[in-house]
Amino acid sequence: MALSTNADFKTRLQSWLPKLVLSPSLALVLVFVYGFILFSVYLSFTDSRLLPSFGWVGWENYSKLWRLSHWEISLKNMGVFAALYIGICTMLGLGLAIFLDQKIRGEGMIRTIYLYPMALSFIVTGTAWKWFLDPGIGLENVIQSWGWTSFEFDWIKNRDYAIYTVVLAAVWQTSGFVMAMFLAGLRGIDNEILKAAQMDGASNWNLYRRIIIPQLRPAFLSAFVILSHLAIKTFDLVIALTGGGPGRATELPATFMYSYTFSRNQMGIGAASATIMLMTIAAIMIPYLYAELREKK
């Protein structure tokens, strides 16, 4: 900590050690994150196809991108997916947390069950739901074999509904985690305030609506930030569950980028789409991180 001009050598070394120790990580991040981001953004302005190339084409990739119906579809899907995924996870998470907060017997057990999907790979989740929702062998087949022969449930094969199966699997995987966040928030609320409100004659409904839920603001904010960033990054789940199909019905920006870059050899366009994804996440994350880090000082 202390150092000055006439410090002895060992003391000076000691004062440099911290920075020395931090520098490998910082160097890795500067090169592999920020350097790479610059490189990718640069590529999005070049005529790269199969391999990176450095012919400058200006905004051409972006204008091409916005004319592609494929991209338009993945953006629309993203909109539907993100809205439902964030909305349902938040409501479900909050509801379950409130229910679990009522001195429930076996709470620990229930919590463990709600949360375990978080430990699974999206590929595993995708595989399980893929076959469970498959009309040939899954739910539809089972119900029909139980005697309701006209029962139909083929959303995963249906262009209009397939995106909802992605929402279903994603909600299954993350809603327990959101529940845990809200539960921690609920447990952090001062019990005396609740007692005081009850003395004031507030009903349970009013207690939650007027006193408790408003105090969960930080949990709502964190849930929103985490869920939206997960939504934009969703990739594996779609690959395992639907492969982006049927047709392009479940393509998302992440799968779009992957297929344009690696299967269709349109690296410039792929890089342009990745840049747009980054900007979207940055618009959400940077203000959040900034506020969080400032607050801590």
Binding site: L22, S25, L26, V29, L30, F32, V33, Y34, G35, F36, I37, F39, S40, L43, P52, H229, I232, K233, F235, P253, A254, M257, Y258, T261, M267, G270, A271, S273, A274, T275, M277, L278, I281, M285, I286, L289, Y290, L293, K296, K297
Partner: peptide, 21 residues
């Protein structure tokens, strides 16, 4: 704090942006 912010933000980038490089 800025150094930490730089390191932390790396967790949240969409990894598509670094795949090619």
């Amino acid at each position: 704090t800025i150094v930490f912010g730089l390191i932390l933000f790396a967790c949240f980038i969409p990894f598509q942006i670094v795949l090619i490089p």
